[in-house]
Simulated assay, not measured.
Amino acid sequence: MNAGIAKDVTTRPEFTLAVLAAAGFVALAAATDGNLLSRGTLEAFFRFLAVPIVIGLSQMVVLAVGQMNLSVGTLTGLSAMVAAWLMLEGGLPAPLAVLGALGAGLAAGLVNGLLVVFTRINGFIVTLATMTIIEGLRYGVNGPDTFQGYSPGLRDLGAASVLGLPVVLILALVVAALVALFFGRAVAGRQLLATGGSPFAARLSGVSNDRSIVIAHGLSGLLAGVAAVITVAASGSVNSSIGDDLLLPSFAAPIIGGVALAGGVVSVAGTCLAAFLIRLVDVMQAQFGINPRWIDLIVGAVVLGAVLLGTVRQKLSKGPS
């Protein structure tokens, strides 16, 4: 029985990702002559891991219902600018500005979901359109200028650590645990998976697929707002280009982590581990001065490979037709 359990664990994608993450970390530490293991470098590594984890989860919850959200990056940037604007121009304290950023993300996500439901247009197209709109709104908040000098307390929180772990990473892991509980224990979470797995069967079981789509997009927007708050706290400044580089990582983390594009399958642990691997690639690029375009090529190729592998695995699981 124990052997069967061990075999089941070792054949899961999360186990493979954990082994790759550990091996990659050791290899990169050796390649940098131990520089990666210095306290400052290690803290920076984990501090900037927080956003990839949360943004991957933001995309994952939409993939759960078989949808996509192309606006996660621009939405993160808009929410970050809203928070900074509320503190600097609106004169609001940091807690209210944080709520404003979360509210902006949630509202935009709900709009995405409602547009998908009422227009019956694929979420890919809808969020492509709202991504463009949000880019304009984001630029319209303060143009090309940079927001800086906002709440020292919030910036101190972004730089703070507990037992060597950055507070923002701890926040990201708490969010990941809550998302895991949502899909594992909450009725709404199980309904999202049912909608993604088989909309027809879900409808026969009394699940409102439309409600699931709206909830998924709303939660995605809320998580993008969380990523924005982490960005505002950790970066110390915000401009209109914030979030532009998050679209590819938002897909890469859940897809490499074993989440099905067709919906119905999520993996919070896999998404977090894949985000760790992507962060390793970013550090490798910085350490060795690799052209970022090559990094994009590598990550894109890995994502494509993960999609193809998932397709083959799905066909094999169904057996011959």
Score class of each variant (00 low, 15 high):
Thr74Met: 12
Gly109His: 05
Asn291Gln: 11
Ala260Cys: 10
Gly184Met: 02
Gly123Met: 04
Glu135Gln: 14
Gly218His: 09
Asp282Gln: 13
Leu128Val: 06
Asp244Ile: 12
Gly206Met: 08
Leu169Tyr: 07
Leu316Asp: 08
Asp145Arg: 13
Met131Thr: 05
Leu178Val: 14
Ser220Val: 13
Ala194Met: 01
Thr11Leu: 15
Val61Arg: 01
Phe25Asn: 10
Gly197Val: 03
Ser208Pro: 00
Ile295Lys: 12
Ser321Leu: 11
Leu86Tyr: 05
Val229Cys: 08
Ala262Met: 07
Gly140Met: 10
Gly263Ala: 01
Val168Gly: 12
Leu78Val: 06
Val265Ile: 14
Val283Gly: 08
Arg313Thr: 12
Val126Gly: 04
Leu17Asn: 13
Thr311Pro: 00
Ala80Trp: 04
Ile278Tyr: 07
Thr11Gln: 14
Leu246Tyr: 10
Ser161Glu: 15
Val162Ile: 13
Trp294Glu: 07
Asp244Leu: 14
Ile278Phe: 10
Leu49His: 02
Ser237Glu: 10
Met81Val: 06
Val168Leu: 13
Ala201Met: 04
Arg12Ser: 15
His217Arg: 01
Ser71His: 04
Leu115Arg: 00
Phe183Ser: 01
Ala160Cys: 12
Val19Glu: 04
Leu137His: 01
Leu178Ser: 11
Leu99Trp: 01
Phe118Gly: 09
Leu169Ser: 12
Val179Trp: 00
Val232Tyr: 01
Ser151Gly: 12
Leu163Phe: 13
Gly300Val: 09
Thr231Leu: 08
Ser235Tyr: 06
Ala64His: 03
Ala44Phe: 00
Arg313Glu: 10
Val207Thr: 11
Gly103Phe: 11
Gly136His: 04
Ala269Thr: 13
Met81Arg: 13
Thr127Met: 07
Thr127His: 05
Leu57Met: 07
Gly258Phe: 05
Leu219Cys: 07
Gly258Tyr: 06
Leu28Gly: 10
Ala64Asp: 07
Asp245Phe: 07
Val187Met: 08
Phe182Val: 03
Gly77Lys: 00
Val174Glu: 03
Leu110Cys: 14
Leu223Met: 12
Trp294Asp: 10
Gly140Gln: 10
Val268Phe: 09
Asn112Val: 11
Ser38Leu: 12
Val65Gly: 10
Phe25Leu: 14
Ala27Glu: 08
Met81Gly: 14
Ala21Val: 15
Pro52Thr: 13
Thr311Leu: 14
Val61Asp: 03
Gly24Glu: 11
Leu181His: 03
Ala64Lys: 04
Ala227Asn: 00
Gly289Tyr: 06
Val82Thr: 10
Ser321Cys: 04
Phe124Asp: 09
Leu37Tyr: 00
Pro152Val: 07
Leu78Phe: 13
Leu110Thr: 14
Phe276Tyr: 13
Ile215Asp: 02
Leu165Gly: 08
Gly73Leu: 11
Leu20Lys: 05
Gly34Ser: 09
Gly264Pro: 00
Gly4Trp: 08
